[in-house]
Design a protein around this nucleic acid. Sequence first.
RNA 1: GCCUCCUUAGCUCAGUCGGUUAGAGCGACGGACUGUUAAUCCGCAGGUCCUAGGUUCGAGUCCUAGAGGGGGCGCCA
Length: 509
Amino acid sequence: MQTYIKDLSQHVEQTVVLNGWVSNKRTSGKVAFLVLRDGSGFAQCVVDLATAGEENLERAKRLTLESAIKIHGKVLRDEKQEGGFEIQVTDLHIYSIAEEYPLGKKEHGVDFLMNNRHLWLRTKRQWAIMKVRNSALFAIHRFFQSRGFMQMDSPILTGNACEGTTTLFDTIFYKDDLPAYLSQSGQLYAEATAMAMGKVYTFGPTFRAERSLTPRHLSEFWMIEPEMAFYDLEMNMNLIEEFVRTVVTDVYTECKDELVNILERKTALFDNIHQPFPRIEYDRAVRIIRGEEEVDGKNAIKELEADLEGVRQVIADKQQSLADYEQKLQTPNLKKGEVNYFQSKIDGLKNDLKKLEDDARNIPQWLESARNFPPGEDFGAPDEKALTRLFDLPVFVYKWPSPIKAFYMKRYEDDDNYVKGVDLLAPEGFGEIVGGSQREDDIEKLIERIKEHELPMEAFEWYLDLRRYGSVPHAGFGLGFERLVMWLTGVSHIRETIPFPRYFGRLFP
RNA sequence: GCCUCCUUAGCUCAGUCGGUUAGAGCGACGGACUGUUAAUCCGCAGGUCCUAGGUUCGAGUCCUAGAGGGGGCGCCA
């Protein structure tokens, strides 16, 4: 009966059948080591002449990387192995011998890997990221479903470029030149369904046509947008906090091995997540970014300056060891192994230096941005970095200046200059993962805002109906799913968090 | 859209001041090895130096334009 690698612990000392692909192979005379992957995990399978016999060993030696096989074998406990088990093969069947596999065991460049995304997904690291993605997806549904929320899909095709802020992909709705757009947000529709169902969330694809070519942007991504009737800003923040804490905790529980051992994610986040998230007003956040106020004795500007100094020191150190290795390479009568060793050290150092020199060029710009941050403006990426690196927990920033926030956000009753918006910024310099607000529920004020933002009133008639017929205080938030996965896994680029990313310049495969 | 770095073998990269026949590692292929973890060792094959112009006795190397890519910023989630 077929077993999966993730279940090997239940079959110790038993004979099992595994189907899978050869992700690595080493042969050594009378023994072959096959690393088998079956989608559920990776396991080393030993084909040994004494146990498996000559025919099976010959078959094992013929295998190429990514050939598909079926094996019969005994499950042995082996602490040296990742996962803790290995298979002593007794029989080996070949489904297919793979042609020469394009992905080698050494490092590849990003462009090559993206062109081979359909194969790249088979590697251990990408497999781990996808497992975390799936775990997060299920944790999100579980969180909302267990709290009485209903999942309500919002339309993907919409008739208006509504909020007016972003560039949308456009298309034609049937033949009569009726313009249609791919949705940039489900929020307005979520507000409508919340008035029907009480507490709802959307979880669907979102499209943005800005030519943003950064590690944080995709043209097509998935977004979670809960919307709750009878919720104010405070309740919204409480929900966001409980939501983020639960998802982080659930994912860590389910994917600890992938996060810690394969992705080498720092665990500080998972250790701290149970503490209350700091909540700071925008005005205070600005003072912190500008270095005018400290957090637990830490100053944003001074931290950045120390970073820059640190990077410069590391560059100096690496340049010194580079010179040392180049010196050693000149030693007469070196063995081939020694030459290779020194050469690989030199290549590695040169690579490190390239990245560090990028940092040394960029940090002064970030410093400039933080130091001169103009109060009243929205935070840029460097400003969020300067702020969040002072915290080891996600931090709420609320009470934002009205002019920089969306038209539908409710203003403070006692101060028209601020709205009841809130962003949740992830720590360790990551930046925004959640943006939300209490919504404007007064129809007169909402009409005023729509006029101020010069939006087409007729397109919002249905939205205004929500205020005409039983308007209630309500609130909601949006979470970019891939950004969440990026933060959870600690990968440095969003393109690795979705199976087939779509971004400016990338439509294939 | 702006700033910056890059493009040399299937892959990752060296290539000094412009100089004669362009190199290494990995991968592939042939071989050695009973415990390997990106195994190791020996041998062998592999090139439109991104494209188009230009400077020069001579261009992988210098100049101009174009294409593609990385990093940072903006727009944003």
